[in-house]
């Protein structure tokens, strides 16, 4: 199996102490549809891990596995394991809600709640029954998301009154207000214009200092610019359905400059998208 070989060259199958999430998907189904197979990805602490690949290759699905967002899809079935803090999060004893408190998520479409900017950011604090100084926390999160200066005078205004890029940074602020260990970002810039995209990318590099980040993107340059590690997924159509799998994983520099697999080479050269 080719992807297993490539993995040997970059990582080992034994968990390293700096691996926060160790994701090993053997088979993943939606109903009777096999969406992803044979994908092993370690998410390293304090690094940005990117998932790239053509549309429909299951990169978002893999990302959503990491904090059990896929549980919301009825018919979702998973074989394999995802270790977080050394514990399989798909263990029946595990509460998915507790997992999501530690592994936050930012979505493709900016999705602020229809409440004030302040309450959007304080939402996670409310869920966690946070008793301390909320104002301070909200300000910290908004500063962390590089949004504070733009909204500090209108914190009581609706989150929906912001522009698309601001809304997305608001969602990032909302996600980091509770300081989760890991931040998952599902194509966070796909609905944004180039200037807003640049801002969010800069933000990711800043957030890397404090958080572990995993990001899905269809934009190769973005992965190249921000990611330390990159995984390339591809669609296997040989069995008549479209099943995604990991082709190659490794340090971004290495993967973009010297891809070892033919599919990766073709994709990076832009022969298909």
């Amino acid at each position: 199996m080719t992807n297993a070989e490539t993995m040997e060259s970059t990582t080992t199958n034994t968990p390293q102490h700096d691996v926060v999430i160790e994701c090993d998907i053997r088979e993943l189904y939606y109903g009777n549809f096999k969406a992803v197979r044979d994908t092993y990805v370690p998410i390293h602490k304090g690094a940005i891990t990117a998932f790239i690949g053509p549309s429909g290759c299951g990169k978002s699905t893999v990302l959503r596995c990491l904090n059990r967002m896929n549980d919301l899809v009825r018919g979702f079935r998973f074989e394999g394991r995802v270790n977080f803090l050394g514990r399989d999060i798909y263990d029946p004893a595990i509460d998915p809600v507790a997992i999501r408190r530690h592994i936050g998520m930012v979505f493709q479409q900016p999705n602020p709640f229809s409440m004030s900017i302040f309450n959007n950011v304080a939402f996670g604090l409310k869920l966690n029954r946070f008793k301390g100084n909320k104002e301070e926390r909200v300000e910290m999160a908004l500063r962390g998301a590089a949004l504070w200066d733009e909204v500090k005078d209108k914190l009581h205004k609706s989150g929906l009154s912001l522009s698309g890029g601001q809304q997305q940074r608001l969602c990032i602020a909302r996600a980091i207000a509770t300081e989760p260990e890991v931040l998952l970002m599902d194509e966070p810039c796909s609905a944004l214009d180039p200037i807003a995209t640049r801002k969010v990318e800069e933000l990711m590099l800043e957030l890397k200092e404090k958080y572990t980040i995993a990001i899905v993107t269809h934009n190769l340059q973005q992965a190249q610019r921000v990611a330390d590690k990159t995984g390339f997924l591809y669609v296997d159509t040989t069995e008549g359905s479209r099943t995604g799998y990991l082709v190659e994983f490794g340090d971004s520099d290495r993967l973009f400059e010297a891809p070892q697999e033919k599919y990766t080479q073709d994709y990076i050269r832009g022969e298909f998208s």
């Binding site: 904090n67 967002m69 919301l72 809600v97 507790a98 997992i99 999501r100 408190r101 936050g104 998520m105 930012v106 979505f107 999705n111 602020p112 709640f113 939402f123 996670g124 869920l127 969602c171 909302r174 996600a175 509770t178």
Partner: peptide, 8 residues
Amino acid sequence: EAAYGMAA
């Protein structure tokens, strides 16, 4: 999704 993603 946003709510569940925030661990509600």
